[in-house]
Design a protein around this nucleic acid. Structure first.
Lengths: 339, 339
DNA sequence: CTAAACTCCGAAATCGCTTTCGCGAATTTT
DNA sequence: AAAATTCGCGAAAGCGATTTCGGAGTTTAG
């Protein structure tokens, strides 16, 4: 491995000087600067970011905790997209992403978010898919580590969070249904009390009130965002005495599960029963009929997360905040006008 | 930040001793060992992996280059799954994943794979979705950095690669078709000469020979693995004078594109024309009829990649190799028996 | 022509940790 | 009881960089 010493020796200067040209300091003559640059190129020298980080105390690395609960597949394309967009944005600022895992060290000690973050010396943290129940969250929120989390209301002296405008999105969904003449609208939400689940429920209720629609407890079902839970919820709903004309599902996967249940019951989605989902995952375009849904703007979410984290990391006294990203309605084929 | 010095002082021992208990060296008495451990816990001390890496010359980090060509979405769930599985396996060995980007440093110099890897001091590299045309590949293959790449035949003193048994998989596809009475089988492959594309073509040809089927150049189409390219290819095929009874597509997305073209032409997939895809992406279950396809075992691919990289990193003289993972046939609804 | 002010550059301390090597004390062997 | 081992610990030399601060050499001012 070639080090800064090799370059210095070869160029006939001190390591300090080499370091200076590498970092663009002004107190170096044009002559030596060029000489050093030339040698650097010749030797194919790459300054070691680790050693540099050690002294500057900035690793130019942000840690990512991405919990997929072993549950790969469709729930995650959404989060994957957010990460991809985040990576692009933060990458331009020169940061690399370190995917961290909570784990038990070889000493047998369990290391959670904060511990791993300090261990790896990351400049900031990005959390996705982390369940509210995670025990490391409390200490993390109190820490001074710049953190942005998505879909999780983690808030602290250096912790901001970000999510779609779930309340507004849910209202958009119901509004769309109402605009198409529906007045009997059921809801399939989540039973875990996630922030998004909660907010979508709220939006649903607000919209109900706004349109003076009847709130029927038996039309409120619970799932876990997954396909089968949507399927089951719909089966329960179909067993009710009176059926709604439409159902709003808090996730596309649940919507798809619901669609299956409907078909199975011999009914037709978009005919007897209309459906609106939430997320706009890729799959939504492919099921048939295409799923009308509320789109979360993953690109923008990633970008906003990145700029927020950058500020948190590089601006002293930047107060944390909550970031909301607008949703949009995507009309496909699961809503029928019954005006 | 609490350092090893703080612990040493508080415990009334030298830093050397603290380091020793932290790393499980034997030459420490039980008494001092306990004392140090207690202080460590009290202070909530986390040894800094960066500083440690600097001296041990092992960062316990593997660099990942994951090119998504801006092309998020369905081509990648496959690679995402491989990464997820890889992460699980390599994570157990104590490694974290650093997602690297090739980029232009603030000095304006472009840094490719090798440069970034050295800069970040990673112990190994994992490459996915990297096009063969990437200019950094040549120097990387010559380097001494342990590397595993998937679906890319990168081979060097420390570079292994891994892919599905694409030849065998393609044969499975054709065999299945033949077993169902098909003798006129078209192929939609790739025009970029990727390793998997090439091998699937090879398998197709071998199977044709094995079953003494006619090779018809006009039934060999080219795409880019994406949906629209499959659609276009199928349209061209449908314009031929004589139609095959089945077509084998080198990717599920192309198969889905082809299915759309078929429906649009007023024909029915699984009736007039049978289709077999390749990959078994999640979507394959959801299109209708469900896509019969060749499944790539992403879990296993990730695991094998991890164990291979671990060996490459930790065993001197481990010769690199090529790793092949078996595929399997997944029967759904797009192949009709015309026996 | 001397003093002041710049320019350039390098010595050395430092970041947080590991690891060798030696030394004194305790223990075991003769 | 003396010699030989063993045990437990610490001093110090790094790992590869950055950065302060002062000094030598030059230029400008007085």
């Amino acid at each position: 491995m070639t080090t800064i010493y090799d370059v210095a020796k070869r160029a006939g200067v001190s390591v300090a000087t080499v370091s200076k040209v590498l970092n663009g300091y002004p107190d170096v003559s044009a002559r030596t600067r060029e000489k050093v640059q030339q040698i650097t190129a010749e030797l194919g020298y790459h300054p070691n970011a680790v050693a540099r980080g050690l002294v500057t105390r900035r690793s130019m690395t942000v840690g990512v905790f991405f919990q997929d609960h072993g549950n790969r597949g469709f729930r995650h394309p959404f989060l994957h997209d957010v990460i991809a967009s985040f990576k692009d944005s933060i990458g331009e600022a020169g940061y690399d992403l370190l995917f961290l895992t909570e784990h038990r060290g070889n000493d047998g000690v369990f290391r959670g978010f904060e511990s791993r973050a300090k261990q790896r010396d990351v400049d900031g943290l990005f959390l996705l898919g982390v369940p509210r129940t995670n025990s490391g969250l409390a200490t993390l929120s109190r820490s001074q580590i710049p953190t942005v989390s998505v879909d999780l209301d983690l808030f602290g002296p250096k912790a901001s969070y970000l999510c779609s405008d779930n309340v507004g999105g849910a209202r958009q969904a119901v509004d769309h249904l109402v605009a198409n003449g529906h007045r009997k609208i059921a809801f399939i939400g989540d039973r875990f009390g996630t922030k998004p689940g909660h907010d979508r429920m709220l939006g649903y209720q607000e919209a109900l009130q706004a349109h003076a629609l009847e709130y029927r407890p038996e039309w409120i079902l619970e799932g876990d965002f997954g396909e089968t839970s949507g399927y089951r919820a719909m089966r329960r709903l179909l067993a009710e005495a009176e059926l709604p004309t439409a159902v709003f599902c808090a996730s596309d996967m649940m919507a798809i599960g619901a669609m299956n249940a409907i078909s199975e019951a011999g009914l037709h989605v978009g005919e007897q029963i209309s459906i609106v989902g939430f997320d706009d995952i890729e799959l939504a375009r492919y099921v048939s009929p295409g799923l009308t849904t509320i789109r979360q703007n993953t690109d923008k979410m990633g970008q906003r997360a990145a700029t927020e984290l950058l500020e948190l990391m590089n601006t002293t006294n930047k107060p944390p905040g909550v970031i909301t990203v607008e949703t949009s309605l995507v009309i496909r084929g699961t809503v029928r006008s019954i005006a």
